[in-house]
Nucleic acid binder design. Structure first.
Length: 521
RNA sequence: GGCUCCGUGGCCAAGUGGCUAAGGCAACGGAUUGCAAAUCCGUCAUCGUCGGUUCGACUCCGACCGGAGCCUCCA
C-alpha cells in the first residue's frame, strides 16, 4: 500500500509522489521570535519531525527547513516595550525556541534560515513580480496584485469576490483591490530598515517564506506545512507570490496541522455563545470569547518551559501524537496526566525486559529503514505472526496520511503482546531458561523501532543526578532491607506500615519473588 | 454574512458501505500476592438528531442541533 497524504490544495488524500524520486523537500513555517513559545508552537515541529522520521524510515532522503522570522511588527513592538533592540530580543527568543525543540526531541530540522539574512532574495522576487506585472509600488510600499493572479484563492477555497464581501479591514487608499497585500513596507523612523529600489523599508510577512524556500529547496518543493491558521492569508499569499514569480507549482502537498485548544489551563470560555451576529456589539463579545479561548491569545497559556516542569516532555510528545495531526488537540492537564499513566506501562515493560535479559531496552539495535527491518520469523510461530501483523498494521496506519493515532494504538497492542509472552512463558520467574530470550528481544526490538519513528523511547530518562538521589537510593535500600526482615518474620503490620507511609510520600514498592523494587509515583 | 472542519463507550481516541466498531485511562470480576504493586485473563459502545440513497450506512446525500477554525500579519 502506497503512502497517501492529505493535500489541502485538493481537499483529499493523494498518493505521495515527490518531485525528485527518493527525495523529499519539506518546508515548515517557523516562529516569529518575539516571546517565549507556548505548547501550541510545538505542535507543528513535533508532527513534522515525526513525518520526517517516517519518510526517512520509508527510504526517502528528506531535507527539512524551518524559518525563523526575526523581523516583524510584533517583534518591533515588544522590543520597544522591553527596551531591547530587535536583534537582541530575536536572538534570545530564538534560543528559547531551539531549547524547546531539543527538549521535545525535535532534531530533524536541517536548516533554520533567518528572514533578515535573506533580504536580497526577497527583493529579487519582488522585482520579478513587478516586472511581470504581478506587483506594483505605492508610496514606498509594494503590493501584490491579486486580480492579476488567475487562481488566487485556490488553497483556502475563496474567491476575490467573497473576500470583497466579507472584508471589514480598512483598505489602503491606493490599493487596487482590498485583498492586495504588502510585499515590501516602507519603514517609519526608528524601525529596522533595508535599502531597496522602492526606498528604505522591510519585507512583508509572506515574502520571506517564498524567498527562503526557493533558495534552499528550489522552485518546487514537496511538502509545505504549517498550522491551519496559516492557510489564509499567509500560505495563500506565499503560494500566489511564488507561483507568479517562477511560473511553476510551488508545493506539491500542503499539509496543515490542527490547532491546540486550551481547556482548563487558560479557562474555558464560550459555550452558549451566539454565533457571530451582525451587530458590532455581538461581534466584539464573541471575538473576546474566542480570544480568551485561544492559546495564542491567552495570557494564561503557560510557556512550554513551565509545562516541562509539570510533565515529562516525552509524555507531552506522545500526547500530541495520539491524536491525528489534522484534528484540533484539546489541551488539558488531565489529558496529559492520563497519557503519562499510559506510558508508565511501557517503562515497566522496559524494566522487566532488563531484569530478564540483563540488557537495556534503550541499547537495542534497530533498523533505520523499513526495507532493512529484521524479518520476524522463528518460534513460537504464533508469536512471530502476531509481531508481523502488528508491524503491518502500524505501517498501514502511518501510510494513511501519517495516522499516528492508529500507530499509537498498535504500540499499546504490541506492549500487551510482549507482556503476555513474558507472563505466559514465565520468563521472569524461570530465568534459567534462556531459550525464549531471542524471541522476546526480537519483539522488544520491534517496539523500539516503531516507537522511535514517533520519536519516543529513544533514550533512557536521565535521572536527576543530584546528590540527594544517591542518598535517597541508599535510604530506600535500607528501608527495603528492614521491611524484608519484617516480612520474613511475618510481621506484616510493620511491613505494611512502611509501604503505606512510603505511598504517602509518592513512593511505590513492588515485591517480587526475589527482590523488592521501588519507584517514585 | 462567506469559507472550512468536527460530533464514536464515564473520559481521551483510531477506523470502516456489509467481517468481533482498534487502543489508552477509569470502573468491575478473576488469576497471581501474606495483603498490595506490577502483569495476565474477562466484562463494559450500534457511532449527535431526523430523513433520504442503497439489498445493506456509523461510514454516502440532505436538514437540523451542538462545537471549533479562518475571513482581522496567531503555529
Amino acid at each position: 500500500m502506497p503512502l497517501r497524504v492529505y493535500n489541502t490544495l485538493s481537499r483529499q488524500k493523494e498518493d505521495f509522489q515527490t518531485v525528485e524520486p527518493g527525495k523529499v523537500s519539506m518546508y515548515l513555517c517557523g516562529p516569529t521570535v518575539y516571546k517565549p513559545a507556548h505548547i501550541g508552537h510545538m505542535v507543528g515541529p513535533v508532527i513534522f519531525d515525526t513525518i520526517k522520521r517516517y519518510l526517512s524510515y520509508s527510504g526517502y532522503k528528506v531535507t527539512w527547513v524551518v524559518n525563523i522570522t526575526d523581523v516583524d511588527d510584533k517583534l518591533i513592538n515588544r522590543a520597544n516595550e522591553k527596551g531591547m533592540t530587535v536583534e537582541a530580543l530575536a536572538k534570545q527568543m530564538t534560543q528559547d525556541y531551539f531549547d524547546n525543540l531539543a527538549t521535545m526531541a525535535v532534531d530533524g530540522i536541517d536548516h533554520f534560515p533567518y528572514a533578515t539574512q535573506h533580504i536580497k532574495e526577497m527583493q529579487d522576487i519582488i522585482a520579478t513580480l513587478i516586472e511581470k506585472g504581478f506587483a506594483y509600488p505605492l508610496d514606498g510600499d509594494v503590493y501584490f496584485n491579486c486580480t492579476k493572479d488567475e487562481d488566487y484563492g485556490k488553497l483556502s477555497g475563496r474567491s476575490l469576490e467573497q473576500m470583497l464581501a466579507g472584508t471589514r479591514a480598512e483598505t489602503h487608499g491606493g490599493k487596487r483591490h482590498p485583498a492586495d497585500f504588502a510585499l515590501w513596507k516602507g519603514s517609519k523612523p526608528g524601525e529596522p530598515a533595508w535599502e531597496s529600489p522602492w526606498g528604505m523599508g522591510r519585507p512583508g510577512w509572506h515574502i520571506e517564506c517564498s524567498a527562503m524556500a526557493k533558495k534552499i529547496l528550489g522552485d518546487s518543493i514537496d511538502i509545505h506545512g504549517g498550522g491551519l491558521d496559516l492557510m489564509f492569508p499567509h500560505h495563500e499569499n506565499e503560494l500566489a507570490q511564488s507561483e507568479s514569480c517562477t511560473g511553476k507549482p510551488f508545493a506539491r502537498y500542503w499539509m496543515h496541522n490542527g490547532l491546540m485548544q486550551a481547556s482548563g489551563a487558560a479557562g474555558k470560555v464560550g459555550g452558549g455563545h451566539d454565533k457571530l451576529g451582525d451587530k458590532a456589539a455581538d461581534l466584539t463579545a464573541a471575538k473576546e470569547a474566542q480570544e480568551a479561548n485561544k492559546l495564542a491569545g491567552s495570557k494564561g497559556a503557560a510557556s512550554v518551559k513551565e509545562l516541562f516542569a509539570k510533565h515529562d516532555p516525552e509524555t507531552i510528545r506522545f500526547f500530541l501524537l495520539a491524536t491525528h495531526y489534522r484534528s484540533p488537540i484539546d489541551f488539558s492537564d488531565e489529558g496529559i496526566t492520563n497519557t503519562g499513566k499510559a506510558l508508565d506501562g511501557f517503562y515497566r515493560l522496559f524494566e522487566t525486559y532488563e531484569r530478564i535479559s540483563g540488557q537495556s531496552f534503550y541499547t537495542l539495535k534497530i533498523a533505520p529503514t523499513r526495507a532493512s527491518s529484521a524479518a520476524l520469523t522463528g518460534t513460537p510461530a504464533e508469536y512471530f505472526q502476531a509481531l508481523n501483523d502488528l508491524r503491518q498494521r502500524y505501517l498501514e496506519s502511518m501510510d494513511d496520511d501519517f495516522n499516528t493515532g492508529g500507530a499509537v494504538g498498535v504500540l499499546f497492542e504490541l506492549r500487551k503482546t510482549l507482556n503476555s509472552f513474558i507472563t505466559d512463558h514465565k520468563l521472569e520467574t524461570t530465568p534459567t531458561d534462556k531459550s525464549l530470550l531471542p524471541a522476546l528481544t526480537a519483539g522488544m526490538t520491534l517496539l523500539k523501532e516503531l516507537s522511535s519513528i514517533l520519536g519516543v523511547f529513544r533514550e533512557a530518562k536521565q535521572k536527576a543526578a543530584s546528590a540527594d538521589d544517591g542518598l535517597l537510593d541508599g535510604l530506600m535500600q535500607l528501608v527495603i532491607q528492614i521491611r524484608a526482615d519484617a516480612r520474613k518474620n511475618k510481621n506484616f503490620a510493620v511491613a505494611d506500615l512502611i509501604r503505606n507511609k512510603l505511598n504517602e510520600l509518592k513512593i511505590t514498592l513492588e515485591d517480587r519473588t526475589d527482590q523488592t523494587l521501588w519507584r517514585r509515583g
